[in-house]
Design a protein around this nucleic acid. Structure first.
Length: 811
DNA sequence: CTCTCCCT
């Protein structure tokens, strides 16, 4: 044990804790900090209280306790113990207690003084889990207000521990790691935009196997990609190579088999990010990194999380590469170029920035603090925070002022998402299997969506497997059963609710009402859309409680649901169902629809035509339609708008007549004129000119007539219309009618576009500068015209000639 | 082109 590199840093750490009571220890994986630090703190006699260490995973908590106990030559549960959900090995003599992160939160909420605890160590803090962020913030508050003797240590593997040290006002101590050098090999040129990750990864694996020796670990984003690469590698690897998959959904035994050293041959493990931190694989010398990571991201707009596949971050790529250097020097192949390396993000987002925050918001409400006042390393995502608050109010866990209710207090005591804890609290013990099911991954992936099939598989597994054509995922099913038993123990007496009623308690915002039409498309009470596979047996249900959907933004696919009767909805949500007058623009029908609807959130339970809607409301709804339709320009209206636009630079008070400005201000000028207009058809025939004219007052109108007159008076006194439809206002007239004209005609201070015509009314020249025309091209025009129209006058000096429309008098 | 990891 003395050979571990962490020992060199221990003196500094103990010294810092003795003088400051806090420290940040930065040590790479393999330095041995997890087992060495708590024992060293105990042996230094820093505190009489217990030393509590947080681990992000149950397996890691158990393993750390076991290794420390072994060092002391004791069984676990004496000096060193652990406590994870549903399992604990601690006794009166326990001095070091390893716990998972959620346990600490519960303990602080229950006993804010942390009586008997002398120190808290946050292991793997760089992972930035929601519970670790929250736990550290709460501990810092406790240490600041109630317990100035409470020691705090954050241990982090990455090189970016400074922000934590600053937050904790603690010295930073750095330790060397104990790993071998890893050589990185990049691609020569970037993957094309059309390149497929599995194909490209398989090629790289083949190359890596050819160029190196030893076990190979391949990082891929998910199970699907792992299966595809597995298929692509078939037959392309030398004899003796053994390919194994490794991902979270596999059962424990299969995971262990993948991790074990191969008894013969060369091992190639295709893994998700599970192999990045959670599981260490023996005898890996080579890493192939496909460069992608799949993460869950909470979308506040839909209130749901969805999975996204993104480029890995620098921190993840470093961590992955490090897995090749645990036993000897290794090699890391990256599916990107050296040049692309700079474009990678440094760290993945912390959970507090990207995850569902319902649990966190409830914990903060129980703590009685606003997140802005807490010493958090990162503030929670504002949109997710608001969405979580709204959900908790809907569940009755928070009151209107955002304070925790008695019901909310009960919810925090259950080890479940607030939705499920609410359901279990209200429905009682009967809901335990459903709560366990909804908390786990689906044991019947690919089967019809009906939830009752899954409950049947849980309750009567043997009969289900004999009689039903679906194969449940056994390890998941067993976990669910065990968890259901545990949840049932502390749950209140059952209230006799049906399965759909219980599910609806947890998902009041995901009651789906089938839309009209043949496709099984649903509108959910929360306002989002969801769609069911057409062949699913539930596809005709008028109402569904939708408990699981994929994350598609526009229309999510339903993965789990259960049909619910309308009468059940009415009984369950009596206080949230109400009649509403609906007067709105229907983009689908292209008209204003006026109805009276009995609504539960966004969905209608009953729907009737509203016979005599208020005209003002109709006009307002029509306005929403107008914003989605083109403006019905007539020639006259367009001419008028063009004149106003022309005059506007000289008179800033004139309203803008550009389409987008008109639409933006439609409420002011158009609304009073919309009486009786209810459809796209009526709007198309609507004359907007009177409404446009009414935007100008009397004075402005007079100025407009003066500045941008409807007609131009020719030198011969004729009135010809000015065309305001083009880019410039323009007129057309016979060239000879402009003889004698020494200046160019203007409106609103701008030159008219003048098209000069031949005696046969053909365009001869277009000009915005008559004097310039006389000086330059008139000479050529004159020669041409004289040949064609010899009977007409074509004087040498047009400036001095008289305007005329006649031919030359006969001589 | 059907779901990463984890926790009270």
């Amino acid at each position: 044990m003395t050979e571990l590199p962490i020992h060199a840093a221990l003196d500094d750490l103990i010294q810092a804790l003795r003088s400051r009571g806090r420290a940040v220890l930065q040590a790479p994986p393999g330095a041995g900090k997890t087992t060495v630090v708590p024992l060293a703190m105990m042996q230094a006699g820093l505190t009489d209280g217990r030393i509590v260490m947080l681990e992000p995973r149950r397996l890691a908590a158990r393993a750390a306790a076991e290794r420390m106990a072994e060092t002391l030559g004791e069984p676990v549960g004496q000096t060193v113990g652990y406590r994870v959900r549903g399992e604990s090995k601690v006794s009166k003599s326990t001095r070091i207690e390893v716990v998972t992160e959620g346990i600490l939160t519960r303990r602080i909420q229950h006993d804010p003084e942390l009586a008997g605890v002398g120190a808290v160590i946050f292991d793997e803090f760089h992972e930035r889990s929601l519970n670790a962020d929250l736990g550290l913030a709460l501990c810092l508050e406790v240490a600041g207000a109630l317990r100035d003797d409470l020691m705090l240590v954050a241990m982090s593997a990455t090189l970016d521990a400074e922000p934590v040290a600053a937050l904790m006002d603690a010295p930073m101590i750095t330790s060397e790691g104990r790993s071998y050098p890893v050589e990185t090999r990049w691609l020569d040129r970037p993957l094309g935009p059309k390149a497929r990750i599995p194909e490209a990864t398989a090629d790289l694996v083949v190359q890596a196997v050819r160029e190196t020796e030893g076990g190979v670990l391949v990082f891929l984003p998910g199970e699907g990609e792992i299966r595809r690469v597995e298929g692509l590698l078939n037959g392309r690897l030398p004899d003796g190579c053994v390919v194994r998959a490794l991902f979270g959904a596999m059962d424990f035994a299969a995971q262990r088999a993948a991790i074990q050293p191969a008894t013969s041959g060369r091992k190639i493990v295709l893994a998700t990010s599970i192999a990045e931190t959670s599981l260490t694989i023996q005898d890996i010398r080579v890493v192939v990194d496909a460069g992608r990571a799949r993460r869950s991201r909470f979308d506040p707009a839909s209130g749901m999380s969805r999975l996204v596949t993104e480029r890995v971050t620098k921190a993840e790529a470093t961590q992955r590469a490090g897995r090749a250097g645990r036993v000897a020097e290794g090699t890391c192949y990256r599916l990107w170029t050296r040049g692309e390396e700079g474009g990678l993000q440094p760290f993945p987002p912390a959970e507090i920035e990207s995850a569902d925050l319902s649990g966190l918001v409830l914990e903060l409400a129980q703590w009685g603090a606003d997140p802005a006042d807490l010493p958090l390393l990162t503030q929670p995502n504002a949109g997710s925070y608001a969405e979580a608050t709204a959900l908790l109010k809907m569940l009755g866990a928070l009151d209107d002022n955002g304070r925790i209710t008695e019901h909310g207090q009960q919810i925090t005591r259950l080890p479940l998402h607030p939705r499920l804890a609410h359901m279990l609290t209200v429905a009682g013990r009967d809901a335990a299997p459903l709560a366990a099911l909804l908390a786990e991954r689906d044991p019947l992936r690919g089967a019809p969506v009906d939830l009752s099939l899954r409950i049947e598989a849980i309750r009567e597994t043997r009969r289900f497997m004999e009689e039903r054509p679906y194969q449940p995922h056994r390890p998941t099913l067993e976990r669910i059963k065990q968890e259901a038993k545990r949840l049932a123990k502390d749950a209140p007496a059952p209230r006799g609710l049906s399965l759909p009623e219980m599910a609806a308690l947890a998902y009041p915002d995901r009651i789906g009402a089938r839309r009209k039409g043949t496709a099984p498309r649903y509108l959910m009470s929360g306002g989002n859309g969801a769609v069911l596979d057409e062949t699913d047996p539930s596809a005709n249900a008028p109402f569904l409680v939708i408990t699981d959907v994929d994350g598609d933004r526009r229309e999510a696919r339903i993965r789990q649901a259960i049909e619910i009767r309308q009468s059940d909805l009415r009984a369950l949500f009596e206080d949230r169902i109400a009649w509403q007058d609906i007067c709105e623009w229907s983009p689908r029908e292209g008209r204003v629809i006026a109805r009276k609807q009995e609504r539960l959130g966004a969905i209608a339970l009953d729907d009737r035509i509203w016979q005599d809607p208020d005209p003002a409301e109709v006009a307002r709804a029509m306005l929403d339609g107008v914003r989605q339709l083109p403006l019905p320009w007539t020639d006259a209206a367009r001419r008028f708008a063009a004149r106003v636009e022309l005059a506007r630079p000289n008179d800033p008070d004139l309203p803008s007549m550009r389409d987008d400005d008109l639409l933006a201000t439609a409420e002011d000028w158009l609304l009073p004129y919309l009486d009786g207009i209810k459809s796209a058809g009526a709007w198309k025939n609507f004359d907007i000119l009177p409404a446009l004219r009414a935007m100008l007052d009397y004075g402005q109108m007079q100025a407009l007539d003066r500045e941008t007159p409807a007609h131009f008076t020719t030198p011969l006194g004729r009135q010809i219309p000015i065309d305001y439809g083009g880019e410039h206002p323009s007129i057309e007239l016979r060239l000879q009618e402009m003889f004698g004209q020494k200046t160019h005609p203007t409106v609103a201070g701008k030159p008219l576009r003048v098209t000069l015509l031949s005696p046969a009314q053909r365009p001869v020249q277009t000009t915005m500068d008559i004097p310039g025309f006389w000086d330059s091209s008139y000479e050529d025009v004159r020669k041409d015209m004289r040949g064609r129209y010899p009977k007409h006058p074509w004087p040498d000096d047009p400036r001095q000639a008289d305007p005329t429309l006649r031919a030359k008098p006969r001589s």
